[in-house]
Design a protein around this nucleic acid. Structure first.
Length: 110
DNA sequence: AAGATGACTGTAC
DNA sequence: GGTACAGCCATCT
């Protein structure tokens, strides 16, 4: 699909360190399309098909809520993966979200 | 071409 | 902090 935009989303998503999470808006903002946060989520749908190894489970909404868990192979997979990386998930929500939050802009600004 | 949809976000109550 | 509403924008029907 020529979606270079998606490629960038995947690239940023892959940069997320293990045990950390980020938000769709943060990724969108780092790509200069903060207003298209929804497109980031849409790109994540393709993540499992176009690019394996894209840790889409590390991307949550601005509240740290696992909004996309139902789009995974199984609804439990997302929190399973997060838990396996040391990210505690409670009630479909990332615990200490502000603490484990990883800002893509930080990496890009280096 | 126009309307509906969605893995979102920010503001308001 | 939870619910409600509006703004945004690519994709699909």
């Amino acid at each position: 699909m020529n979606t270079n935009f998606y490629e960038q989303v995947y690239e940023v998503a892959r940069l997320i360190p293990k045990g950390r999470v980020t938000s769709y808006g943060a990724i969108a903002k780092s790509l200069g399309v903060a207003k298209s946060s929804r497109m980031v989520g849409h790109a994540m749908l393709y993540a499992g098909l176009a690019h394996p190894n894209v840790p889409a489970h590390r991307v949550v909404n601005s509240s740290g809520l696992l909004t996309g868990k139902f789009h995974f192979k199984t609804p439990d997979l997302m929190e399973q993966l997060l838990a396996a990386e040391g990210v505690q998930v409670k009630n479909d929500k990332v615990v200490n979200f502000k603490t484990v939050f990883w800002n893509p802009l930080e990496e890009m600004n280096l």
